[in-house]
Design a protein around this nucleic acid. Structure first.
Lengths: 301, 301
DNA sequence: ACTTAATAATACCTTAAAGGTATCAATTGG
DNA sequence: CCAATTGATACCTTTAAGGTATTATTAAGT
């Protein structure tokens, strides 16, 4: 049995006439007759009664006609869906995000992707940097978002943006009224830092900046992420430094003030990471959306 | 696209190795490689990633694998069901029966058929003789049961049995005590006859028998069928003649007594009728059951 | 009753494509 | 670095699908 034979059978059944069906199929009548005969031989069933005006379906033929239409439509659907999956328009994309990374940029990107590829099911996973890398290697996820990534041989990354540093202080703090805070003004001031976990880290960046400026750090707490850190600031644990994009988070009594007097490399990146040899169309589609987002960011700047 | 290609694809997906799949398919490796390439070209999708140990499915390939298994199983089912339909083991058989014909023989035959062909859906239709013939020609039914059929060019019939005549009388009737009633004893007795409708009829047979014996018929009522006729007898409308197989019907006060002194041709047949050029396997299967039933009847007699 | 027109079936040939053999290229493991 | 294993390629053989010409059969029209 052959898909061709099924198509031919349907044509003959619909035309009720082999010659006419042959025209519709753009072949001549004899081979069509032969294909129908072969089909009947294989099924050991007469599918048509031959009459003077043409042919008419037997009851077995009628049953097979229904089945044939189902088969053909299932095949068409399979082709269509597979093509779409190949273009990244269909499937499932597992994405890892980190604690405070979900504040604005990542949701924006995910929303764009969801709009452009509505057939793709996005599954989010909260993961630390180390977990993301392990999950990528085990293919439990296809993309991860993170900051300050050390280069790895099997993992590629795309930088999305670079955040300047901002100071989060309580509004009763002496520095809270200033439009810009210079790093030196934070000398020995109580600071909350984050995150805990794999290096290099946002803490490392902050430490380096303080050290290079010859300013003393007075760490009161080390917490897991930016959200916790800002929460502590709002409860009077001192100030903290954050990547500027985290400043969309509003907590009572917390003010965000730009940090001045810094070298150009005092920024923290947001990047997405993925396996170097993952050539899946879904990932390509996702990275395309990321690039588009990035170029629009630069355009505005 | 081709069923062969789908089968090949499934084999490769399952073996995760083209050479091994080729062995399983009893072909050599190069043509299998080529068929997979052709499939990928047609779908414009990479179905497999080629690795050193073999191949592994892409996500599009995984989707297509599921679809392929559905397709193959649907095709297998279609073949199987069509074959069964061709052997008369599957389908629908529309059968016409007449008023009093449902008393014993017909249900017996139908039950046998239903046991032998459980996949066939039997649909019963109450129809008079004329309706049955019209319905056969329009193919609304495939078989009809009836009596006393005139030969027709396009319709064949199979005689199932020949009923002798019996007298139905009320138990307070003077003849009710006799073990056998002679036709002459019914001279001028009030008689109920049936059926109304197309000739030749059971009435015609009864009339002929009376006429040939020189006995006068005193018709009080003409009713639609045997059941009604016997009901009238039980209410004192006189006697009636019935085919002996109708004597299974018990009504209060009605006795059935054999009728004697008749010519050999004073019998009424039960036959089934069908289109001469209906070669459907369902009909053949049904007629085979009828023949088997008939031969067992003769064996007992 | 004969002829004509239309149908599916058959015979025979051509052509396209599936399958086979030999070989190559690439990768992995020792 | 070599041997082994993998999929890919080149080229040939064979199978089977498609085409042309024709026949057999049946229905309709004269």
């Amino acid at each position: 049995m052959d898909i061709r034979q099924i198509r031919y059978f349907v044509a003959v059944a619909e035309e009720r006439n082999i010659g006419r069906a042959a025209k519709r199929l753009f072949i001549s009548q004899p081979p069509l007759t032969r294909q129908i005969q072969q089909l009947e031989d294989e099924l050991q069933v007469k599918l048509f009664e031959r009459t003077a005006k043409g042919v008419e379906l037997t009851s077995a033929g009628l049953l097979f006609l229904n089945e044939s239409r189902n088969i053909l439509s299932l095949i068409e659907q399979a082709k269509e869906r597979t093509k779409r999956a190949g273009k990244g328009q269909l499937g499932r994309l597992d994405v890892a995000i980190f604690g405070s990374g979900i504040l604005n940029t990542i949701p924006d990107i995910l929303k764009r992707f969801k709009t452009a590829y509505p057939g793709v099911n996005i599954v989010l996973h909260q993961m630390s940097k180390a977990e993301q890398i392990e999950a990528l290697r085990q293919k439990r996820i296809s993309v991860g978002f993170n900051r300050l990534l050390a280069p790895l041989p099997d993992i590629d990354s795309t930088m999305i943006l670079q955040d300047k540093l901002m100071v989060a202080v309580r509004d009763d703090h002496p520095l809270a009224t200033k439009p810009l805070i210079n790093l030196k003004e934070l000398d020995n001031e109580p600071i909350v830092v984050f995150p805990k976990g794999a290096r290099p880290n946002f803490v490392d960046l902050v430490s380096r900046v303080f050290q290079e400026a010859g300013v003393t750090m007075n760490i009161t707490q080390t917490v897991v992420d930016a959200v916790t850190s800002i929460a502590l600031v709002s409860r009077g644990f001192g100030f903290c430094l954050i990547p500027s994009s985290a400043s969309v988070l509003q907590l009572p009594g917390v003010k965000y003030i730009p940090l001045g007097g810094l070298p150009d490399n005092a920024t923290v990146d947001l990047s997405c990471i993925y396996l170097k040899d993952d050539h899946s169309p879904l990932l390509s589609a996702f990275l395309a959306v990321v690039h588009e987002y990035k170029s629009q960011l630069n355009h505005h700047a």
